[in-house]
Computed example of a mutant assay.
Amino acid sequence: MYDRILVRYLQTTGRSALMLGPRQVGKSTLLSSIGPDLSLNLANPRTFRDYAKHPERLQRELEAAPPTMKTVFLDEVQRVPALLDAVQVCLDDQPGRFRFLLSGSSARKLRRGQANLLPGRVHVHHLHPLLAAELGQDFELDRVLAHGTLPGIYSERDSATRAADLRSYTDTYLREEIQAEALVRNIGGFARLLDLMAASSGRILNVQALCRDAGLGYETTRRYIDVLEDTLVMFRVPAWSGSSRASLVRHAKIFLFDIGVRNALLRRPLDAPLPDERGVLLEHLIACELYRRLGTLWPEAALYHYRTRHGAEVDFVLEVGREVWGIEVKASRQVSRRMLSGLSSLKDRCDRVARRIVVFLGERPQRLDGVDVLPLEDFLLQLPT
């Protein structure tokens, strides 16, 4: 089991918490490690039936609980959203009596069930696949670029088994469960859209092109994309607006939540990353490392991309408080001045640019025309944990 950074945050606060994240990122393992006094797994068919039929049962049980029962863990709470009302009653009527740890893999189901998300009563956290910092000495770049960092898959030592597990995950979870989540009628169209989203991962979202290629209507395509985002399978990196949007591309980039899932959906060989995709995959890795820190680990940061209508672009723009950081990703061992044009454009447009960074695969840091040229490992070490 890998040590998760979020455990430290949960252990240092007594607040109740709602942990959201895709399947198999380790939510149950993480929350169980805190040592709850009562655990209810709503993925268990019998437990689900009991509490779905009588959600008020939880409140009655907690009213009769002994004083030693303090921490209550509800796993996959989106399956019975009505339980959140019982949680609110307990938190309001007996402040400090219980601490609730809640996990869920679908914000869509919670919203669709008009769930009480307990504003002001619980802290909401997002758990993602493993960060490089959580892998520690187990971090292997080629392995990450091929198989991603879902904990159960990455911890498997046999590469062939890892690949088989990854394909099984994409087929049974993404293609079947997400399909069911979407109430899909056009199964073929949804399957094509899922593959197209994987192929578009790291690119600017073009809904019209996806409609055409998937053979779907515009509203259907938008709804399916919303489902993928609500189930935390994909995320958007919006366009940075700056001081004037007149000459900037305004559409978001999209990324799947895990590199290995992207590769499996596209039927890529999973023994090693394809050489001609190394740049795309490295950019995807940096996108995930930055995005996974937003919120709990880096609350003052917001993530964007930068692209002008004249072709200048920067892979990522971080707003950290009042500062702006421009980050370019290069899958090469050398960096030249001609690679800095996008960062120069960003600096010319915004006087708040405090750092310009190129992440590359060289061995030692460099300084080039005011730009920090950082090896991948050095860059990752500078990110908050």
Results as ranks from 00 to 15, higher is better:
residue 3 D to L: 15
residue 4 R to N: 05
residue 6 L to E: 11
residue 8 R to P: 12
residue 9 Y to E: 15
residue 11 Q to L: 11
residue 11 Q to V: 07
residue 15 R to S: 05
residue 18 L to R: 00
residue 22 P to N: 02
residue 23 R to L: 06
residue 24 Q to R: 12
residue 25 V to D: 08
residue 27 K to E: 01
residue 33 S to C: 08
residue 34 I to R: 07
residue 37 D to W: 06
residue 38 L to G: 02
residue 41 N to I: 00
residue 45 P to K: 06
residue 49 R to H: 14
residue 50 D to A: 14
residue 50 D to G: 13
residue 52 A to H: 06
residue 52 A to K: 01
residue 54 H to E: 10
residue 64 A to M: 13
residue 64 A to E: 15
residue 65 A to K: 03
residue 69 M to A: 09
residue 72 V to M: 05
residue 73 F to Y: 10
residue 74 L to C: 06
residue 76 E to P: 03
residue 82 A to V: 03
residue 83 L to K: 11
residue 84 L to R: 12
residue 85 D to N: 11
residue 85 D to G: 07
residue 88 Q to C: 08
residue 91 L to A: 08
residue 91 L to T: 00
residue 91 L to E: 01
residue 92 D to L: 09
residue 96 G to V: 10
residue 97 R to V: 05
residue 97 R to S: 01
residue 101 L to P: 13
residue 101 L to N: 10
residue 109 K to S: 10
residue 117 L to K: 02
residue 117 L to P: 14
residue 122 V to F: 02
residue 128 H to L: 14
residue 130 L to Y: 00
residue 130 L to T: 06
residue 138 D to M: 13
residue 140 E to P: 08
residue 146 A to V: 14
residue 148 G to T: 02
residue 150 L to F: 13
residue 151 P to W: 05
residue 152 G to A: 13
residue 152 G to R: 09
residue 157 R to L: 14
residue 162 R to D: 04
residue 163 A to G: 00
residue 163 A to R: 03
residue 166 L to V: 12
residue 166 L to E: 04
residue 171 D to T: 08
residue 171 D to K: 13
residue 175 R to P: 08
residue 177 E to Q: 06
residue 177 E to H: 03
residue 178 I to E: 14
residue 179 Q to N: 12
residue 181 E to P: 07
residue 181 E to R: 08
residue 184 V to W: 09
residue 186 N to Y: 06
residue 186 N to G: 06
residue 191 A to F: 10
residue 194 L to C: 08
residue 195 D to S: 11
residue 202 G to T: 14
residue 202 G to S: 01
residue 204 I to A: 07
residue 207 V to W: 15
residue 208 Q to S: 14
residue 213 D to M: 02
residue 216 L to H: 02
residue 218 Y to W: 05
residue 220 T to M: 05
residue 227 V to L: 04
residue 230 D to V: 12
residue 232 L to W: 13
residue 234 M to A: 08
residue 237 V to C: 01
residue 238 P to L: 10
residue 240 W to I: 00
residue 242 G to D: 05
residue 242 G to H: 00
residue 245 R to C: 07
residue 245 R to F: 02
residue 247 S to L: 10
residue 249 V to K: 00
residue 250 R to P: 05
residue 250 R to H: 12
residue 252 A to M: 03
residue 253 K to Q: 09
residue 254 I to Y: 02
residue 257 F to E: 03
residue 258 D to G: 01
residue 259 I to E: 06
residue 260 G to Q: 04
residue 263 N to E: 03
residue 265 L to A: 01
residue 266 L to E: 06
residue 270 L to H: 01
residue 271 D to I: 12
residue 272 A to V: 09
residue 275 P to A: 05
residue 275 P to Q: 11
residue 283 E to T: 11
residue 288 C to K: 09
residue 288 C to H: 13
residue 291 Y to E: 04
residue 291 Y to T: 07
residue 294 L to M: 04
residue 304 Y to D: 00
residue 306 Y to K: 07
residue 308 T to G: 02
residue 322 R to T: 15
residue 324 V to A: 05
residue 325 W to G: 10
residue 327 I to H: 10
residue 329 V to Y: 10
residue 331 A to K: 03
residue 331 A to G: 04
residue 334 Q to L: 09
residue 338 R to K: 15
residue 340 L to H: 01
residue 343 L to D: 13
residue 345 S to H: 05
residue 346 L to P: 07
residue 359 V to M: 07
residue 362 G to P: 04
residue 367 R to W: 13
residue 369 D to R: 09
residue 370 G to R: 02
residue 371 V to F: 11
residue 373 V to Y: 02
residue 374 L to K: 05
residue 375 P to V: 05
residue 381 L to T: 09
residue 385 T to L: 13
